[in-house]
Computed example of a mutant assay.
Amino acid sequence: MSAVRLTHPDRLLWPADGLTKRDLFDYFGDVAPVMLPHVRDRPVSLQRFRAEVSEGGFFQKELPRGAPDWLARAEVPKRGGSVTMLLANDRRTLQWLGQQGCVTPHVFLARADRLDRPDRLVIDLDPSGEDFDAVRRAALACGDALRARGLEPFAMVTGSRGVHVAVALRRTRPAADVLAWARDFATGLADAGVAGEDLLTTAFRKEQRGGRIYVDVARNGPAQTVVAPYAPRPRPHAPVATPLRWEELEDPALRPDAWTLTSVRDRLHALGADPWEGLRATARALPR
C-alpha cells in the first residue's frame, strides 16, 4: 500500500499560527483512530483551501478528477443523476484529504449502504451573539429533553461558536421523518426555554431571532452534511470540532473553540479515549 504523496508541505494555511499543509496532513494521520469511527462509510463533502484559510475556500462534493483508484467512493443520487462522493474509510484517505487542502470534511448523517436511513440526528445550537454560557446551558437542557424521549445525547463544541448535540439512531426511519421529528422537537425545546429564560428560537431569519440561540435542525434533511468530529475549522488559531464528555458542559469556562489543531492530541492523550467512543452503541429507534 503506497503512502500519500504530500506536495507543497510548507504552504501556510494559518499564517498567524505558523500552521502549514504538513501540519494538517500530520494531524489527520494522528487523529485517524478516533475520527474514523465517526466518518467511515459516510459520503464526504470537502471544504478545500488553495491558500491560507482567511482567503476563503470552496466546497466540493464530486470526487476530484484524477483521484487515486484506491479511494472508497459512493454514488449519491441527485436531481437528474448522481454524484460520486468520497468515503473516508481509512487513515490514508484522511491524509489524502490533507493533501487536497481539505481543512474541514463534512459528512452525511447516513451511511452509504442506506442513504435513505440516517443513523444520527444532530441539533445545532447556533448563537446570535457571543454569549457561549447561554449555549452551554441550552445544550444541557437539550440533553435533558432528548433523554426524556428515550434518546442518549452526546455533545461537541463546533470549533466555531456553538454546540452540536448528537444522538445515535437505529436505521428505521427515512430522513424526511427524522427531519420532521427534529423540527417538532426543536419547537418544543424553544417553547420550553432554559430554566425559565427565553433563550431559544426556531426562527430561520436572523432578524427574527431577537438575539436568541437558533435551534437548527436543517442538517437532518436528505443529503445534508455536518462538520465531522475532529475536523479543523478555517478560523483563527485552527480550532477543531471537538467531542465532549457530557459533564464538560457543566463547566462555565468551556469555550467552543477551546481545542485546536495543536492541542487536540494532548487532550485525547489526557482523556485516554474518545469521549464519543460509545455513541454508536446507544442507538435507539426514533420515537414517534
Rank of each mutant, 00 (worst) to 15 (best):
W14S: 13
A283G: 13
A166W: 05
A180H: 12
D119K: 06
D23E: 14
V107W: 01
A203I: 03
E247H: 11
D23H: 15
D119S: 13
L12Y: 10
E130D: 15
R209P: 15
L46G: 03
D10M: 09
R280K: 12
I123D: 05
R245I: 00
D10L: 10
Q60Y: 00
Y27C: 03
T158C: 04
L179F: 09
D119E: 15
P43A: 08
E247R: 09
V122M: 12
R183D: 08
A203G: 09
L261V: 11
L271Q: 11
D177C: 03
T242D: 03
D26A: 13
D191I: 00
A110I: 06
V194A: 08
L6A: 13
P243E: 04
A3D: 15
K78F: 02
G196L: 12
R267P: 08
D131N: 15
D274H: 07
I213F: 10
Q208S: 12
R235T: 00
L109C: 10
E52F: 14
C142F: 07
A16M: 08
E75R: 15
W96S: 01
L189C: 13
L125P: 06
P222H: 03
L13H: 10
L109Y: 09
A145I: 08
E277T: 12
V107R: 00
V39T: 06
P229L: 02
A51T: 15
P239Q: 06
L24F: 09
T202K: 05
G162N: 06
A16F: 02
S128T: 13
W246V: 06
G210N: 13
W96K: 01
A145Q: 11
P275F: 05
D116M: 04
V227I: 07
I123W: 01
D41A: 10
T202I: 08
G56D: 12
T172Y: 01
P239W: 01
T282P: 14
A223K: 07
F28V: 02
R136D: 05
A32N: 06
T242V: 07
W246H: 09
A186R: 03
P234I: 11
I213K: 04
V122P: 04
E197G: 12
H8S: 14
L146V: 13
R50D: 14
C102V: 13
D124C: 06
T93A: 10
G143H: 01
P222S: 09
C102H: 02
E130Q: 15
A176G: 11
A176L: 09
G129C: 07
R79Q: 15
L12K: 14
L271W: 14
V39S: 02
R65A: 12
L24I: 04
V163H: 07
P105K: 05
K61L: 01
L140H: 07
L19G: 03
F132Q: 14
A148V: 06
E62M: 09
A145H: 09
Q95Y: 04
P232E: 09
L24G: 10
Q100M: 10
P153Q: 11
S263K: 08
L286G: 04
A88L: 02
K21E: 06
V31G: 01
G196M: 12
F204Q: 11
E75A: 15
L19P: 05
T158F: 00
V34E: 03
P64R: 01
Q95C: 07
R91S: 07
V39M: 03
R149P: 02
D26E: 15
L254F: 12
D30E: 14
K78H: 12
V227M: 00
